[in-house]
Design a binder for these strands. Sequence first.
RNA 1: GGUUCCGUGGCCGAGUGGCUAGGCAGCGGUCUGCAAAACCGUCUACAGCGGUUCGAAUCCGCUCGGAACCUCCA
Length: 494
Amino acid sequence: MALYEENDVYISNSISRKKELFTALNAPNLGLYVCGPTVYSDVHLGNCRTFISFDLVYRYLTHLGYKVRYVRNITDAGHLENDADEGEDKISQRARLEQLEPMEIVQKYTLGFHGVMSRFNAFPPTIEPTATGHIVEQIDMIQKIIDEGFAYEKNGSVYFDVKKYNESNDYGKLSGRKIEELISGTRELDAQSEKESPLDFAIWKKASPSHIMRWNSPWGIGFPGWHLECSVMSTKYLGDEFDIHGGGMDLKFPHHECEIAQNKASNGSEGPRYWMHGNMLTLNGQRMSKSTGNTLLPHELFTGETDKLEKGFAPTIARFFMLQAHYGSQLDFSSDALLAAEKGYHRLMAAYRKLASLEPSAESTSEFKVAEWHKASYAAMNDDFNSPILISQLFEATRTINSWENKAPLSASDFKLLKESMQAFIFDVLGLEDIGAQGSGQKLDDVINILLDLRKQARDDRDFSLSDAIRDKLADAGIEVKDGKDGSTYSISL
RNA sequence: GGUUCCGUGGCCGAGUGGCUAGGCAGCGGUCUGCAAAACCGUCUACAGCGGUUCGAAUCCGCUCGGAACCUCCA
């Protein structure tokens, strides 16, 4: 029996605003689509948080035995600068600025994105489609939407007719908006605008002569609209109806609202059955955002080369920090919070290493009930991927493990369950990495053990100035000596 | 202005109509040559004011404060 058959997973579905029991359309197959980045500049930590959140989702569902097709797009066609569907797209703008081909910009920042995600130990998606690689499919979808009567062509551009759509559908159901309120809240339309209503959005845009990224279409030379690619690529690879669609909270409106409309208008289905939205990472209480410049870049975090942090932090520690909050809550990034997470992380990892080196006993005499703990740990993740609760479970185990000496007071089967679960939760599900692990080199391990032997000798001889010097100098080198009843161990912090 | 969400102890963060996570820091112990680590014990809570209830931090209303969206943004 697969794990997913014995674990009922509940997901906060944005569209119903309720926690719902998740059922896969075609178990064990499962489709997950996540909106990826626009590759016109470096990704910042806010972007990373969303992708780490969905990496957790992907990892847990995979852990449960689902065969997940995980699609995450790369937006490389360039979105426009503003609401009026006017102006230059961001990739072209950046290309001009850096004096590169647009596709060089795309390549540069795509590689950067991949590099960063890999440092955070996030799995790559199983399919990573690009918008420019799906122009033909986008043109097809536009044509379908026109054929169904939900879009109109104007001077070489095509616009989605939101009012028309809303007559037979509910535009705004995801974000809880009413079309009347949206209209009344809109500023006066430019006299220039071709749109029949301010709510209409471009699904194909005529290219001005200076526009670099351009393709042929039945409506002339142009480029696809902002929201179309996700509709096209999600349904192409996952089907007209599929399981889960994720993305950042900021994409809920209008991006995801438009996706639903496009899906419904073109194929009659709204697409995903579960919508998941990751919440924002804030810096100084304000959302990180490329356009406002309130950002922290991954390399600044890793190296500490920023006035926003006291020191650098390893990627896995930032990951651990993020997973200590629920993906649906806002999280503020601060030095103090990172520092606290770092200490907790090291304690957890040290306990795991200790566990791995212990032996079981004949029978379980510990008050720590492994089976109950195991069950509660799964229950945490089943409840809308509640990683903070899972982590609190891991710390419960940590305290217990640390109190043991020599042998674990557990039967072989309990011990095996605890060890394998800790391993699975820490590394497979949470995706953490043990940067303080011994064996960062057998030779280094040997050398440190020689030093620890020398120190023991000095202590036995009551030559404490020598033994303390060894301890302090190792500490300076980032190697912490820990004295226990049965001799000394060490851990390396980076 | 409209829509949505949040306000938890020194800090970070879960959760919830009665059984009151966890991390970090503090305090008191145990251990240690000293320290660190580790363990044990312990102190700080649910923004304010009303209401519903046998009982609310949890539900409802109001007030105050903050955030996201309503323009591209994870």
